[in-house]
Design a protein around this nucleic acid. Structure first.
Lengths: 209, 209, 209, 209
DNA sequence: TCTTAAACGAGACGGTACGTCACGTCTTGTA
DNA sequence: TACAAGACGTGACGTACCGTCTCGTTTAAGA
């Protein structure tokens, strides 16, 4: 007697997945978000632009946000590869302030890169409301970057440039979060001068010495 | 010369507006966002729950986000009134660190209040993507609060407790933005201890003195 | 406490129905069935051709077949009205054979009318498989016509031209059903000569007298 | 000259055809039509139920109706074989009326057999709309049976029991078509009494002798 | 106090996108 | 090379909301 009910939600066979379709979907998703914005980007639109059936999208992703997130991961990975082999660390020239300023300046550049702007804003926004998505966004993209700051700060502690009782995970937020918030919520302009100032304030505090 | 062309898009007459409907719409919007989340809250749903025609919503607001924002303003105003007449300032006991910690602890409490959680997250998220809405959200809700910190920091500068060359608008971000980011993006837990630490780090810096 | 579940399937308000849309839907449905055939006629196609939202169709009809059936009723009603005021009876000239032949010849003409051909075939076919639809088709279109034959045959019985023990409801099938089957199932050609023969056979039987 | 262009649409090799798959497909098709009805029977469903790839169906049949028709032929052939060796003729006991009544009573039984009901209705319905299929249905299933009546009627004519000028091909429709229509279109109940009456009316006519 | 024009509730309408289903084709690995 | 399996592009399904547009029915202003 064959099965009748039980909708049989077997996962699709990854081995037979069409690489060409996946690429086309990523490209279409990123292009549409950049061109018409996230809310007016639709799954139907992505499918049409990618020359792909809707079902091919629904087969591999669970939502528009899911597609965009993977597309963005892919974009980031590509960008990282293009940018060459500089390793995923913050340089340690011995001058903590200079090193942090350099990295933050690079971050400023990236935040202003139009290719990244639209999708990452959209994902950040969606992540605020969709807990699951937000968690993935943070763990896959944000945390690894933050960890680099933790490492650099620990090295600085070893070198006696940061007080040993400081918690690096909190300390890094003093200069990273203000930048993030200004960018996300448009609460102020973003510039090299601004991030330099953040580093100075964070390292030496606001109170007179 | 009497009106001739122009399809007569006159604004509605505020004087005849139904107060009862407005209240019902606010209540329905806040309740639905809390119950089913922002994305699954619809204008039709708000209208039905409020026992109101859709047109009454479209007559007075331009979008779902717009309704929710006003509902949230209303809620905040009510809450402020309920909370009594403590003025919109940060106390100045002379001890800057203590004053900031106290205010931030109150903020922590508010961020954890379930009545505020859902709508303010939703509005923040929508504001990331809808520039116009984001600007209004920041101007009407965020900036006034931040200004209080500016004022308090300036007083501290006058009292010699903060270095005079410090820009208070940037300085306040050292402890406000980390809290905001943790809350918005779930990048870490929120507690009194955490905000206390932020204030300490910000005031005295990370480098040894 | 407002209702939450219970999908609330209230019937729509007939008084506010758009007559223009209904007409446009009938026209589009009949045109499409005639042009591309019933199976390739879709609800989306009807809606598009009628310049109407799909929901307007789903609001008032339950299926493609349902739309087509009402469209066909409407067409029949119109045709009947156009054809003028000849009443819904079979003429009684006193000559039963002649009267029946005349009516059947008219039926042959109608069966060959291209406006009727496609929709009525489609409805008949759908009615075979969809019991409910078939029942409505039979009671609203077929039975009234058959009743006319019953009446005429009874008159003939009163006039002594048909044996009194004959059941008219069965008797009429002797000439009506063969025509119906030939038309429906293409089991043979249809012509005046054919229907005339049917009447003769039926009235006088196959056995020698 | 070797094949060059023409995309090589060679017909499959019948010799290598899997008998097991064919049987499984017939069984699945008939079972599904009986269980869920023809419209909700799908090729995917048949393939799944038969444990067969979709391509195996498309390789050997051109449509769902095609599959079902062959399945039904197969079923009929089996049934005929099971029923034993009574030859494909109508008995000739010399009593035409009795012979016809007997055959029609057997037909009534068959029409009420649930194994035949669903598929033959479905095929009849599909045949109304799909000309090609209808033709095959009539030629392979209907006409052979009708020919038996033609033969029997001719014998009756030879025996002087039917007027010589009668066209047997039309005459048989007087009792066959009414039964067919009642069954197909549910225009009335089907019983031995009904078919007996049909034979009586057809043989002796409606008019008094 | 009565009139009357507006705001109102209700909800039908033309649309767009949703997420699902089945189509018929094509590809991959097995027998 | 026929086959089981199933991914693919395609297109229709029936549903949910969108924002606009009538419909009567309150309702509050001013005549």
């Amino acid at each position: 007697m064959p099965k009748q009910s039980a909708p049989d939600k077997r996962p699709p066979d990854t081995a037979r997945r069409s690489e060409k379709s996946r690429r086309a979907i990523y490209d279409a998703a990123l292009a549409l978000v950049a061109e018409v914005g996230y809310p007016r980007t639709t799954i139907e639109g992505i499918a049409a632009r990618a020359g792909v059936g809707k079902q091919t999208i629904y087969r591999w992703w669970s939502s528009k946000a899911d597609v965009l997130m993977e597309a963005f991961f892919d974009l980031s990975a590509q960008a990282a590869q293009d940018a060459g082999q500089q390793p995923y660390t913050i340089p340690d020239t011995g001058d903590l302030a200079a090193d942090l300023k350099a990295v933050l300046r690079a971050t400023v550049d990236e935040l202003k890169d139009p290719r990244f702007e639209a999708p990452s804003r959209a994902l950040a926004a969606e992540g605020l409301v969709d807990e699951e998505l937000g968690r993935r966004f943070v763990t896959k993209l944000l945390e690894p970057s933050l960890q680099l700051y933790v490492d650099r700060l620990r090295a600085a502690q070893d070198a006696g440039q940061v007080r040993p009782e400081i918690d690096p995970r909190i300390a890094l937020e003093l200069f990273v979060s203000p930048l993030a918030q200004r960018w996300l919520q448009h609460t102020g302009p973003i510039s090299y001068e601004y991030t330099d100032t953040l580093v100075d304030y964070a390292l030496h505090g606001l109170a007179p010495r």
